[in-house]
Design a binder for these strands. Structure first.
Length: 462
RNA sequence: UCCGGCGUAGCGCAGUGGUAGCGCAGUUGGCUGUUAACCAAUUGGUCGCAGGUUCGAAUCCUGCCGCCGGAGCCA
């Protein structure tokens, strides 16, 4: 007999069928009425399957009565309407086969609640909890919907490299990739390490962004996106940062900042709507146990247009808010976390797109505006989570780009490919980067980003 | 990296200078179509690590390690 997943069994409308289920025991309750209740979960959905194990089973005394949380079982029997309240159907077992026992005391996940801090020390076992099962399913759906959204709009999925020789992009500290012996690397006459003898014949690192490669493909194929792991070696110790995270980076040719912002909004609203439609049971769990109100918030944001204002307007709004900020807002300074929280959390109470930042506080590749002091950049700010998207229209004018690189102190020779895109058939183009884990955080209400990725990588955590 | 808080039983916590405690889990027994099950008994400790003050330190002091929250950097 083939096994049927619990999600399918619980959705069954006809009872009486002979079925096989398999999963991990969450709890066991014994009745003196001649049977035990087993709560079995197989990860296919949040809910457990209630199994009725009668004492007439040949292994009842020896095995069933000694089943503890974490044990794995295969159960065969009749799917029946439940006598008790609390579940529609239950499985009346004719056979319970114990695949793997789970010694109590030694198994860290008992019946009692275990908090997220503790669970973080058990990355191999935490997917067996309600929270992390739900997280894995929501994360999966969001990833699938990202591909669906772009595919439906004719964007090509491009695989940009994880290992790159693009250095000093200014996006952050990079992890070095090397096969040199750290104790005695080859050295140049001046004593510095000779990376010419390294595996790639030059310095190489893990990517901090697929944007540069993405631009090249957009400037040939039109609309593309990347979705892959990204690495930052910054010593960031916050609930919003990881050393290894997943980033979505669409790039559009023949597009300006307005197109970029419109794409970002359509993208996020599609994802909010999709996760609501497909993850109702799991979102309900987050709403009850993690962050009350998270579902209502998603429903509101899936329906309403985003706020939209320029950096200059944002600063004026902050200055005249009458609010006492720890850091007084002023034109030319980057927006502080408290400013972003005020804009997204209080003024707009939802996502806000802030555009046209001062040139001095943004990256060299962002397109210079006609006012001569701002660039066509945008950030999408969410309540609670803060910046979830950073993007821009790219500078497509060769001379203007070279000038920006000089001002940023970057050597144009280090970016021959990037400059070639402006030299040969240059076109206006724009794109953005979305932090996937921050999206999952926002959709689930999870407080710490380390809890929305299966195996978090952060300083002192690997 | 900076600021603040925390580190005591498997888990969650109390204990602020004088015999190391409670709840949950576990074990045993009782009860029950149960579902955060319930009732009774019971097992379980290098008080993060190192040093110092003191007759005496979980408690006070110093250093280190780890974790959490906030800030910075960003997605």
């Amino acid at each position: 007999m083939r096994r049927t997943k619990v999600a399918e069994l619980l959705g069954a409308t006809v009872c009486g069928a002979e079925v096989r289920a398999a999963g991990w025991v969450r709890t066991r309750r014994d009745s003196k009425g001649g049977f035990s209740f087993l709560e079995v979960n197989d990860g296919s959905c949040l809910a457990n399957l209630q199994v009725i194990a009668p004492d007439t089973l040949p292994n009842y005394g020896d095995e069933v009565l000694h089943l503890h949380p974490g044990a794995s079982v295969v159960v065969e029997g009749e799917l029946a309407q439940s006598v008790g309240s609390g579940q529609a159907v239950e499985l009346k077992a004719r056979a319970v086969r114990v695949l793997g026992g789970s010694p109590p005391v030694e198994y860290p996940l008992g019946k009692q609640k275990v908090n997220f801090d503790r669970l973080r020390e058990l990355p191999h076992l935490r997917p067996r909890t309600n929270s992390f099962g739900a997280l894995a399913r929501v994360r999966h759906v969001l990833a699938q919907e990202i591909h669906r959204f772009f595919d439906a709009r004719g964007f090509l999925y491009v695989h940009t490299p994880v290992i790159t020789a693009n250095d000093c992009e200014g996006a952050g500290e990079m992890f070095r990739v090397t096969t040199l012996d750290p104790h005695s690397p080859p050295r140049l006459p001046d004593g510095t390490v000779d990376f010419g003898q390294d595996f790639f014949g030059r310095r190489a690192s893990l990517t901090v962004s697929g944007q540069l490669e993405g631009e090249a493909y957009a400037c040939a194929l039109g609309d593309i996106y990347t979705f892959g792991p990204t690495f930052r070696a910054e010593n960031s110790n916050t609930r919003r940062h990881l050393s290894e995270f997943w980033m979505v980076e669409p790039e559009m040719a023949f597009a300006d900042l307005d197109d970029d912002a419109a794409l970002a909004e359509a993208f996020l609203r599609h994802l909010f709507g999709a996760v609501l439609a497909r993850c109702g049971e799991d979102l309900g769990f987050f709403d009850r146990r993690v962050q009350p109100g998270v579902v209502a918030r998603l429903e509101r944001l899936a329906a309403a247009p985003f706020g939209r204002l320029t950096y200059t307007e944002a600063v004026r709004l902050l200055e005249t808010s009458g609010r006492a900020f720890e850091y007084a807002p002023s034109w030319g300074m980057d927006l502080q976390s408290e400013h972003e929280r005020y804009l997204a959390g209080e003024v707009f109470q939802g996502p806000v797109v802030v555009t046209d930042y001062p040139e001095a506080i943004k990256a060299f590749y962002m397109r210079r505006n006609d006012d001569g002091r701002t660039v066509a950049a945008m950030d999408v700010l969410l309540p609670e989570v803060g910046e979830i998207i950073g993007g821009s229209q790219r500078e497509e004018r060769l001379e203007v780009l070279l000038e920006a690189m000089r001002r940023a102190g970057l050597a144009p020779e280090a970016y021959p490919h990037y400059l070639d895109l402006r030299r040969f058939g240059s076109v206006p183009h724009a794109g953005f980067g979305l932090g996937f884990e921050r999206l999952v955080q926002f959709c689930t209400g999870m407080n710490n980003i380390r809890d929305v990725i299966p195996y978090p990588r952060a300083p002192r955590l690997c």
